[in-house]
Amino acid sequence: MASSKAQAGQTLWAKMPKANAELFALTYGSLVTELVRDYEDPIEVNAQLERIGHSIGVRCVDELLSKADSSNLGSAVTQCGNLRDTAEVVSKVGFRMFLGIQAEVGGYSQDQRSFSIYLQENPLSTFVELPTIGDEQSSSSPSGGLDDLRKLKYSNLYCGVIRGALEMVNLKVECTIVRDTLKGDELNEIRVELKEVLSDGAGDDYKEE
């Protein structure tokens, strides 16, 4: 079952027109740089990155579903029976088809309402280095500014993308980046938690933005 999704992801990825990953990374970098310059507060930058991701997510889910459909990959991709299926599609098909990377899924909670996506490589963070962690004291200095940047969740875009994409299929989720290679962890981990399964036509309650 799981391997069929990986297969589907590979098929879709092979068909996608490609772009240079460095141009992609540098373009994302210039967006983040601009946000950091405009908002200054890293917490606010994280929120903005999430918002931007959300706007990408609501659109890229359409691309995924329609391309899976037109490639005759069938219901394995387009119809999910439970959150496990959804998690597999997000990681094995979604990440694969758009970014060409291997994403693993695991860490299901007891109640099956949350899971983690593990990324060994992160195309967003090529060439990126964040200020190092270590001197916690200096972060309390009133100046804040640059050394506050270690609160920045550089790849927070992913959280928004996943939230936006799943929202379009009536799953209200919350995502957080719990591990980040930029912060010295050995891999990237995105925690996804299901909050609510929306009923059809519940589109209105996402007007908060």
């Binding site: 772009a19 990953a21 990408i56 490589e121 060439f127």
Partner: peptide
């Protein structure tokens, strides 16, 4: 770049979304 095996490409869509 980044030690990535697969010729370092992403999908054009991914770039287009970010752009």
């Amino acid at each position: 770049p980044g030690g990535r095996a697969e010729g370092s490409v992403v999908s054009l869509s991914a770039f287009a979304y970010i752009y």
